[in-house]
Nucleic acid binder design. Structure first.
Lengths: 134, 134
DNA sequence: GCATTCAGATTACAAATGTAATCGCAAACT
DNA sequence: AGTTTGCGATTACATTTGTAATCTGAATGC
């Protein structure tokens, strides 16, 4: 076998995570490890899924190398192998790349123009800016 | 027929645009109208595509209602029916929604932490903030 | 010990996506 | 006018994604 899946130059987690898969990841980032059933409890209601669906998604995520499994009696416990902050960072950067030529300022401008910035956001961002200047 | 595709409550352009399709849109946002061949000239090299691929993507985009066509002799001229700024706005909001619970500040923090903010970005953002406070 | 149950594994299947090749037809050339 | 050619339209086909149903084998309950 050609030493394929589950890792790359950047370490674990280069495989793309789909939207449905992402929901599962969120549940596990919130709390882990969890069993398939627990994950379902966390997401099935909201997404209108049944357990088989969750199991499929868990398998795919394991194949993609972004979830680790640990046997616990007859079932498995699933744990993320990538940090949410890394995922979020990659996705954010990808968007900025695709839509704003890699510059973050235009994204900010866009959000501003869109009223997507609450006064709280603005205050917080100002605080972060001050923070950075030190 | 059930008065289906090509528009929704928000007006034109609710259909999701895929990655490949997005490259085509970018070319047309940069300059329009353009023929299929011109679009190909603009993107085929970089993406390693051949003309048929571009034509497929153009068709799909027309079906999705995000491109308008206008006959020009024997061929078509393609023009975006949605503004890039709208698309960008929607996509940005979607990301902020998915990854940051709708709050823009954490996105900003994320970018900051990731060194994804150049000094220019920072300066620009500060300027925008001042701007907004007036 | 044997039936039931409950896990993960395997298979399913339609829609979307990436990436074309082919078809059919009208315009252009000769 | 007949032939070529250059277009959009139609068809193709593998992969990924969404959403499951079924299978298989081990643990559990009698």
């Amino acid at each position: 076998m050609t030493a394929k899946a589950s890792s790359d130059a950047n370490g674990v987690g280069a495989e793309r995570i789909s939207d449905a898969e992402h929901a599962v990841m969120e549940a596990l980032w919130r709390k882990s490890p969890q069993t398939a059933v627990e994950v379902c409890d966390a997401v099935c209601k909201e997404r209108g899924w049944s357990i088989p669906t969750v199991k499929t998604l868990l398998s795919r995520l394991v194949n993609k190398g972004v979830l680790a499994t640990e046997p616990d009696g007859r079932r498995f416990l699933y744990t993320p192998r990538i940090k949410r902050s890394d995922y979020v960072g990659t996705e954010s950067k990808r968007l900025v790349e695709r839509l704003f030529g890699g510059r973050a300022a235009p994204l900010f401008a866009q959000l501003a123009e869109n009223e997507a910035l609450t006064p709280d956001d603005i205050a917080e961002i100002e605080r972060l800016l001050q923070e950075m200047k030190k």
